[in-house]
Amino acid sequence: MSDTLPSPVPHPADKLVSRPHVVYYNSACPVCDAGVCAMRDRIAEADVEWVDVHRNPERLVPLGLDLEDVRERLHVVDPSGHLQVGAPALLTTWSLQPRWGWLLKPLGWPGIRRLTSWAYVLFARQLYRWNRRQGHW
Rank of each mutant, 00 (worst) to 15 (best):
35 G>E: 15
49 E>N: 10
64 G>A: 04
60 L>E: 02
75 H>N: 10
83 L>Y: 01
68 E>S: 12
52 D>F: 03
114 R>S: 13
40 R>S: 07
73 R>V: 04
22 V>S: 12
23 V>T: 06
74 L>Y: 12
2 S>H: 03
103 L>W: 09
57 P>F: 08
78 D>W: 04
106 P>N: 13
107 L>H: 02
136 H>I: 04
62 P>Q: 10
126 Q>I: 02
75 H>P: 04
38 A>C: 01
75 H>G: 05
85 V>R: 14
55 R>M: 09
42 R>N: 06
106 P>Y: 08
117 S>R: 14
26 N>Y: 10
125 R>M: 03
92 T>P: 00
103 L>G: 10
71 R>T: 05
83 L>K: 08
12 P>V: 01
101 G>S: 14
48 V>L: 02
60 L>C: 01
94 W>M: 13
39 M>C: 06
76 V>N: 09
50 W>P: 00
95 S>T: 09
132 R>S: 03
11 H>N: 14
128 Y>L: 07
116 T>W: 02
114 R>N: 09
58 E>C: 01
29 C>Q: 11
9 V>S: 13
135 G>S: 11
107 L>W: 11
97 Q>L: 05
86 G>Q: 10
115 L>P: 00
92 T>L: 13
26 N>K: 00
86 G>T: 10
10 P>V: 03
105 K>E: 13
118 W>R: 14
55 R>L: 12
43 I>R: 00
4 T>R: 13
29 C>A: 11
107 L>I: 03
115 L>H: 04
12 P>T: 02
37 C>S: 11
129 R>N: 13
56 N>P: 00
34 A>L: 06
2 S>Q: 05
53 V>I: 15
20 P>D: 10
130 W>L: 14
12 P>Q: 06
26 N>C: 06
44 A>G: 12
83 L>D: 04
13 A>N: 07
104 L>Y: 06
21 H>I: 02
37 C>T: 08
46 A>E: 12
88 P>Y: 04
65 L>A: 02
60 L>Q: 01
17 V>M: 05
32 C>A: 10
79 P>R: 10
48 V>W: 00
38 A>H: 05
13 A>C: 00
66 D>I: 04
121 V>D: 15
34 A>G: 08
1 M>P: 07
111 G>D: 06
110 P>E: 05
98 P>D: 12
111 G>E: 07
7 S>M: 09
94 W>N: 04
45 E>R: 14
27 S>T: 08
25 Y>F: 15
37 C>A: 12
52 D>N: 15
35 G>W: 03
88 P>Q: 08
126 Q>E: 09
93 T>I: 08
132 R>P: 01
1 M>A: 13
99 R>C: 01
53 V>L: 07
78 D>P: 03
59 R>A: 15
15 K>W: 08
94 W>E: 08
61 V>W: 04
73 R>W: 04
59 R>E: 15
116 T>N: 12
63 L>D: 01
113 R>W: 07
36 V>C: 00
56 N>Y: 06
82 H>T: 07
124 A>E: 13
33 D>W: 01
64 G>Q: 04
